[in-house]
Design a protein around this nucleic acid. Structure first.
Length: 294
DNA sequence: GGTAGACCTGGACGC
DNA sequence: GCGTCCAGGTCTACC
């Protein structure tokens, strides 16, 4: 089954796919040779379907491996709109970056949208799994979580949906740790799933909450396992760009760009992007870094 | 408020 | 094959 969704111009599916590493984390499946993105999605009625995305002139065409009823199609339309940021408008950002040589490519390439997961729960878990580990570790842990706890695609044991909070909460923490090798992150993920499952935390409501950025950040920082870096990353996914995702890579990039590779601290990274105000997170993220280019 | 040390895993490296 | 070291953010205890 195939249907089309409009996107606010300019739009580039490729720019969304390459906006960060999410496309390489299960249950996303990115075929680099074909340039095709797939996602194994569990619907509200618990059905699991495989979705693929194709760029068309005014937006994106969505293909499902199974037929969908009207309600399911409405649900997937809303989910894909959120995942690809189809309704996001970056004209203000493009306006202020036009004169900056290191950002002049952003409008031309329709950059700005960041690939998101259907739920903030999934984005939060994946963000926690990026902390204090190499990227290969993030891929391994996410794959283990999906294959061990995700609902399988009918007739295809190689593809599972991302596990629901209920499914993770129903397991024992030591089982989660033992089967997925999440290490010390395991209690963070388990605790988050339990809080959502019990109704103590309504994480998904933050996607549409009209809270000031600082308040939203405070809510995110209250989650065990989410610190400054993780909160900034999640804020970016929620469309708030006034905090920087300062990790070891950011420090290395800024040190090389403006400090002759001298040792610097996080405040130097902050200072370097202060002028971009509420857009500084995005300016940093899309900056055309000279590191590795020479 | 700032800082040190522990947390956990996989990979690189030396023997 | 085995042991050691290191990288990567966050939490907690302590000052």
């Amino acid at each position: 089954m195939r249907f089309e969704l409009d996107a606010a111009p300019p739009f580039s599916l490729s720019a969304v796919i390459h906006s960060h590493g999410w496309a390489r984390l299960a249950p996303f499946n990115f075929d680099a040779a074909e340039g095709q993105l797939l996602y194994t999605c569990q619907l509200k009625d618990m059905r699991v379907v495989n979705l693929s995305f194709e760029e068309i002139p005014n937006g994106v065409a969505v293909k499902s491996n199974k037929s969908l009823n009207q309600e399911e199609q409405r649900e997937i339309s809303a989910v894909v709109t959120w995942m690809l940021g189809l309704d996001q408008d970056f004209s203000e950002f493009y306006e202020i970056t036009r004169q900056e040589p290191k950002l002049k490519q952003v409008q031309e390439k329709a950059q700005g949208r960041l690939l998101r997961c259907p739920t903030l729960f999934e984005d939060t878990v994946k963000t926690i799994l990026t902390t204090n580990t190499a990227w290969s570790g993030t891929i391994r842990m996410t794959q283990a979580l999906v294959s061990q706890f995700g609902e399988p695609l009918p007739g295809d044991s190689n593809h599972n949906a991302f596990p629901t909070p209920e499914r993770i909460a129903a397991s024992e923490e030591h089982t989660l740790r033992g089967t997925t090798r999440l290490g010390y992150r395991s209690p963070y993920i388990h605790n988050l799933a339990q809080e959502i499952q019990s109704g103590q935390l309504d994480l998904e409501s933050l996607k549409t909450a009209s809270l000031p950025t600082d308040q939203l950040r405070k809510e995110l920082l209250s989650i065990k396992g989410v610190g400054n870096y993780a909160a900034a990353n999640l804020l970016m996914l929620l469309g708030h760009y006034s905090y920087l995702t300062i990790d070891s890579w950011a420090i290395k990039m800024v040190s090389h760009e403006w400090h002759d590779d001298q040792t610097i601290g996080p405040s130097a990274v902050e200072n370097a992007f202060e002028k971009w105000g509420e857009w500084k997170g995005l300016a940093y993220w899309l900056w055309d870094w000279s590191y590795g280019a020479e």
